[in-house]
Design a protein around this nucleic acid. Sequence first.
DNA 1: CTGTTAGCGCGTTCAC
DNA 2: GTGAACGCGCTAACAG
Lengths: 346, 346
Amino acid sequence: MDRQEGRSRKRHRGQGRVTLADVARQAGVAPITVSRALNTPGRVSEAVKARVDAAVEALGYVPNLIAGGLAAAGTRVIPVIVPSLAILTFIEVIDAIQKRLEAAGYQMLLATTDWDLDREAGLVDTVLGYSPSGVILTGLRHHPRVITRLKEWGRPVVEIMEVGEDPIDMNVGVDGLALGRAMARHLLDKGYRRIVFAGSHLGHDYRAAQRLEGHQQALAEAGLPQGPVLEYAEPASYAVGARALADLLAMTPRPDAVACSNDILASGILLAASKQGIRIPDELAVGGYLGLPLAEHLSPPLTTLAVARSDMGRQAAELLLQRLEGMTPAEPVRDLGFTLVEGGST
Amino acid sequence: MDRQEGRSRKRHRGQGRVTLADVARQAGVAPITVSRALNTPGRVSEAVKARVDAAVEALGYVPNLIAGGLAAAGTRVIPVIVPSLAILTFIEVIDAIQKRLEAAGYQMLLATTDWDLDREAGLVDTVLGYSPSGVILTGLRHHPRVITRLKEWGRPVVEIMEVGEDPIDMNVGVDGLALGRAMARHLLDKGYRRIVFAGSHLGHDYRAAQRLEGHQQALAEAGLPQGPVLEYAEPASYAVGARALADLLAMTPRPDAVACSNDILASGILLAASKQGIRIPDELAVGGYLGLPLAEHLSPPLTTLAVARSDMGRQAAELLLQRLEGMTPAEPVRDLGFTLVEGGST
DNA sequence: CTGTTAGCGCGTTCAC
DNA sequence: GTGAACGCGCTAACAG
């Protein structure tokens, strides 16, 4: 019922930032014209575009993406949901994703599930509340609600790390079973027969468990019994690797080779072996997965199945961006494969 | 329970998500009451709260944080701006920040400057467009515009990694000069005199350059001339460490100790030395900074000045959250210090 | 303790 | 090519 005062400089809530309306006033056009000049410059005359640009510059206008997001839905935010940041494996992927997204003017919202699919479901709900432009999540296994929601969501989704059947939308990763099989076969080819699988966090990290499964498959295919498994409840670390070495040396019959669920564990074993003077691979061959930067600098360098993690991140972002720009990616499901890097530890 | 179609199924732009209005209808209250029941439960009656909760549950309501952000300003997003994710140093900090924020219901928006303060300024502008609840940035040096904007912004800001005079708002970190001095003094105390500083990326990483400065100060205080500096343009890596070892061994007079700008570089030197049979510390003492997990697993373990990075992240998040909850943190500027961890490499 | 009103800043209708 | 309305979903004000 009041109208007279406070009409103009209200600011009772705003943060006093320069808004699109300010730019419009300065440029002598309607707000919508500024919006068009900025977002679809083709639909505005050169002259107006120039005036608007000048006003933007003069006022130091920065768009409020929140308001834009509310109006149009789509905030140029891409949530990236991974199990943990304490695992080096994810860092390079995230780094690559972030670089690519940022170059395209999108921001990465990083969230972690702590390996819990229920938490993941909650996070997906939450981040969808930000009207993101797309979503990147880890793996192909999710809470059923996540799958339903994202499928009917209608915006681009990429699942990374693992590749397989029936992704929610797009998918870039590697085949975990194949990884497990390949390392076991490599060890068998090298002549090792008393092969142990050492795994960390297998109960939580089902992709590591897949590697174990592939490992056992390969042994079975070679007509051998299932290999023994050393399992550690904690996430992989150099310290767990050191413990694993001790446990391996205490086993009877003494194993001649160990496949480790990831390179951190394998590196921990090599580092501990070096400290204790255990000769690698003569006394024990060690193989890892995923190819961390440290692997090649150890003595001997670690034999590992390298996965192109940066590339995985880059491609995941690329797929997302293509879809955001209205294109239809040629191969929305990509198996990046892996490479056996023989370092000398086998 | 279906209403008359038409009004309920408009969805002409929205994503068809359940909104607060839907919950209000279901619970038989006004939308604002639902808002209050969810955000400030103390201000509504038990009965209403229960009805609202039931409706939320029944409908599967998830708040649209974008809309909330527009209305109230404050999206429960905390941008974290760091130079790079390729540096292990930042990962643990980020991990700790993310864990703490997420536990409090905030999301982390991660952006990288690629060591460029102009890029940082652009990023700050961009992320402020998301009406974040607070901001965390790296270091105390920024583009003047960043400092002005954030100071008048009025929401909590934490600068991390480095501690010093005149932060924008709050500050948690370590004193770079002190780090540099402490390592140099340690090497001097051990009796080394031909001490080299090996640094990576010093032109970009001014905090690493501060450590060099402190290093030279300590030499000067001991009445020694400025030590030689080996400088590498790239970011630190194990490979650069290997090159550094070669360069060190080629110097005349042959140095007896090297302080490395960070632990990656130092580890690279130790790994290469181990490969080449160089005896550490007899032929060359090696010291690092920041205390990466790998350090203690090398042979010999690396002597380093450990910085509590997880703690830094946790405390930064904690300060921010305290302010977001209306409290005034006791110590808004915190020097976390460092610990000399003697590993045997010196 | 609860409801009414009025926007937050922008983009999508539709007009002109 | 440009502009006027309207509304996205939510919450700060100010009643009652």
